[in-house]
Amino acid sequence: MHGIGNYFIFLGNLFIKREAFRTYVKQILDECIKVGIGSLVIVGIVSTFIGAVTCVQTAFNLVSPLIPRYVISLVVRDMTLLELAPTITAIVFAGKVGSNIAGELGTMKISEQVDALEVMGINSVSFLALPKIIACLMMYPLLVILAGFLAITGGYVAGTLTGVITPQDYIYGIRADFQEFNVIFALIKSFVFAFLIASISSYKGYFTKGGALEVGQSSTSAVTNSCIAILVADYLLAQLLL
């Protein structure tokens, strides 16, 4: 509870008395490259395989001959958009980017680099955390779109190669009964998750005390806390919006 209160104070500090916006532009671009390009490979691999697995397992479960085969790809599509692309990618993202943010800020904290900023009169909270949060908000939705595309492609490749579904049925299925809101929902989720991961990890990193050991602990707790927050937010958003 105490931690949650401090977290909100931390969020408040992000926006009061920040530096002029121009000081952030270059930092945000640097962070975007680090966050976005750096996560491409892992997000790509994870989402492709998850799409493939979903397709094969759905086919395995649909034993009744009464159900048309195109339902398989319909299920792959809806699961991808509703859950797999935004949420599973968020867990991966928390492991990759969240731990990185907490480690970086934690190291800056214990090596007095944060103090050096403060002595110069810079609001170190916003100076360090805001570019990371903005970069995550910009890049994570793009990663989710990519993940969704790759998951559906992965399902197609796995489904047609194993022969559980014909290419025609697959294409028909992913277009059948399509609801646009699911895409919007996925994007809303991705913004929320990106904010949670970046801010929680910054918070955990920024309040590191001690030495190298504690930096490692901060990284770990950034990832675990981000994952919990993602799952809670996932449930709340589903209740609110679906």
Binding site: M108, E112, V119, M120
Partner: peptide, 23 residues
């Protein structure tokens, strides 16, 4: 106040024990 502090801080330099250079 915050602004006066900021003004005074412009004139302050500090050398830290571990140098605290930005990595």
């Amino acid at each position: 106040t915050r602004n006066v502090r900021r003004e005074i801080r412009r004139d302050i330099g500090m050398l830290f024990q571990g140098s605290a250079l930005f990595d």
